[in-house]
Design a protein around this nucleic acid. Structure first.
Lengths: 346, 346
DNA sequence: CTGAAAGCGCTAACAG
DNA sequence: CTGTTAGCGCTTTCAG
């Protein structure tokens, strides 16, 4: 195993001191003939500076940590793209992990990020790690929570999230705009984002004189539970003698499952039931599925910018959702404001 | 900004030397009462060891670098999952970047990984970085190239890829097994994987007495070019008076685009034309699209294992593709060996 | 079992 | 402009 060249090796080879080499590398004042010899030596020895040692002095690495709960969701790809782009523009890399929705991994990974002295942390999770993130923030590594707002954030802890209530309201106006009055909901559970979307939907529906009964909201934690959830939704609607004419899914993660459960039970979309879900995805235009899109790429950019710019005061960014109307809620403009039609999808 | 506690602070607080603290942290021999005081101090000061400094001694960090060309492809999610899982089991994090198919970013990012002294590098790209990766491998950081085989690999450079010729052959037997004899191909260009898949397809077709003319293979580098590619394919087949009865797509990245181009031109799948593509994806079961699946999760695991286990000799792993037959090539078993039907999808 | 001291690869004063 | 020196936070001999 070949030992790597160090700055000392380069210095010896070039016949200068390590300080001079360091200056050449970092843009200090060095006479041209000397600098030339150093560059020559760097090339000859294939010297690659050690970023780890370097960051000892900076106090932190040039890396941005990202903790994702569930890479599977289409939302995250664009989020990561946004982060990565800002990181690249600021000479940072992205140190990235996936918790697979397991709390113990989440804790371990945030800790690992801390140990790596990341320049800042972006996470789509982290209810469990608030004390550590607060400490990280205090010592100069900003933490940005994505897709959850942090109540009463300490300095250095920011959040970037969707206006989930608005998302729910958008669903309500779009559906009612297409004459739908009997809505069923499949939601993923007790996370605040899920609750808020349902609340927004319920709120806007109520304002139109259309209450959303508890039984019209079913919970499916994972794809495997979706079949039952949809089944019971349909059964309940039949039993009360007022069939569903719309089904809403409050998480992009379950879109495929809910759509399949519906069509698998012979439900025609949009003729029998309108279908509206969260998060745009590559197949949505082809399938004609209307969605409430999150500006996930922008969210990623914003989150990374907060890490880079380290504002003094905690920032809470709440971005607006947009409706992408396609065919799954029926034809016609409905309540869609002009200019919000079909953005090109995925 | 609060200064972080160092090992020295802990030592002072506990009334011991830094060496003793280090021993407690790394499992050296320390008397219990002393160790207790140290642990107490660690907790009190919320001490988190600096992994960067630590890795100076190890010579490398505990991080595995991953360079992805294009996160958009469904293939990569499972790949990353596999890598991440093995990494987690070996106390490693994953340092990850996306090149967005830009060569200059790729070079910069591999360099950055090198500077970060990653424990090993996994990349789905890297034609341009062979000299650096060879040096990295020599100095103890194995490099694993995924989805490309490295000709004549030096020690420490491994590869994990798909048997692309077999993938092409699988396509041929499946299509002909369903009575299709006039195949058109949309492929992404000149990367070896693309070429090999087409070659395998052509080979197996030829063995059945069905030549695949050059005109039957169209190239689309990106989604925007797919419309034209499919259009010219269809036009050519019409002009020679022998309409296409099957269209194959050799990259998962273009599946949506090819499928949409086909259906958008009024082509019925599978009645007019059978459709077969690469890489399984979440919507495939619902859409009834047959695919040739790569064992991407396994590929990720294998790649990470090579990084962790650092075999002396270069390893070239070539994994077999599997056919997931659904409805898009017509009903019936065709040439599908028993037990390879419907694996449950993406 | 524990501490003092040296050193990892690099940067940052401070002289010259 | 350049070299010397100290030191970043940690591990690791080597004595005791």
């Amino acid at each position: 195993m070949v030992r790597r060249a160090t700055i000392g090796d380069v210095a010896t080879y070039a016949g200068v001191s390590t300080a001079t080499v360091s200056r050449v590398l970092n843009g200090g004042a060095v006479a041209e003939p000397t600098a030339g010899r150093v560059r020559e030596a760097v090339a000859r020895l294939a010297y690659t500076p050690n970023a780890l040692t370097r960051s000892i002095f900076a106090g932190h690495s040039s890396t941005i940590g990202v903790v994702i709960r569930d890479l599977t969701s289409p939302f995250y790809l664009d989020l990561i793209r946004g982060i990565d782009e800002v990181a690249a523009a600021n000479d940072s890399l992205v140190l990235f992990t996936n918790t697979f929705r397991q709390v113990d991994r989440e804790v371990a990974q945030v800790r690992a990020m801390d140990e790596q002295r990341v320049r800042g942390l972006i996470m789509t999770t982290g209810e469990t790690a608030d004390s550590r993130t607060r400490r990280m923030a205090e010592s100069g590594a900003p933490c940005v929570v994505v897709a959850r707002t942090v109540p009463d954030p300490p300095p250095g802890v920011h959040s970037v999230s969707l206006d989930n209530v608005a998302a729910g309201r958008l669903m309500a106006t779009h559906l009612t705009g297409h004459g739908r009055t009997s809505v069923g909901v499949v939601t993923a559970g007790r996370r605040p984002s899920q609750l808020e979307r349902t609340a927004g939907l319920r709120q806007a529906l109520a304002e139109l004189g259309l209450p959303l009964p508890e039984e019209a909201v079913t919970v499916a934690e994972s794809e495997t539970e979706v079949g039952d959830a949809v089944g019971s939704l349909l059964a309940w609607a039949r039993s009360r003698d007022r069939p569903l004419d719309a089904v809403v899914c409050t998480t992009g993660r379950l879109t495929v499952a809910v759509h399949s459960a519906l069509t698998g039970r012979g439900v025609a979309i949009p003729d029998d039931v309108a279908f509206l879900t969260m998060d745009d995805f590559a197949w949505a235009p082809a399938l004609g599925i209307s969605v409430i899109a999150q500006p996930s790429y922008q969210m990623g950019r914003r989150a990374a910018e907060l890490v880079v710019e380290r504002p003094d005061e905690p920032v809470t960014l709440i971005l607006a959702p947009t409706l992408v109307a396609r065919a799954s809620c029926g034809e016609g403009p409905g309540a869609v404001p002009p200019g919000q039609r079909e953005h090109g999808g995925g």
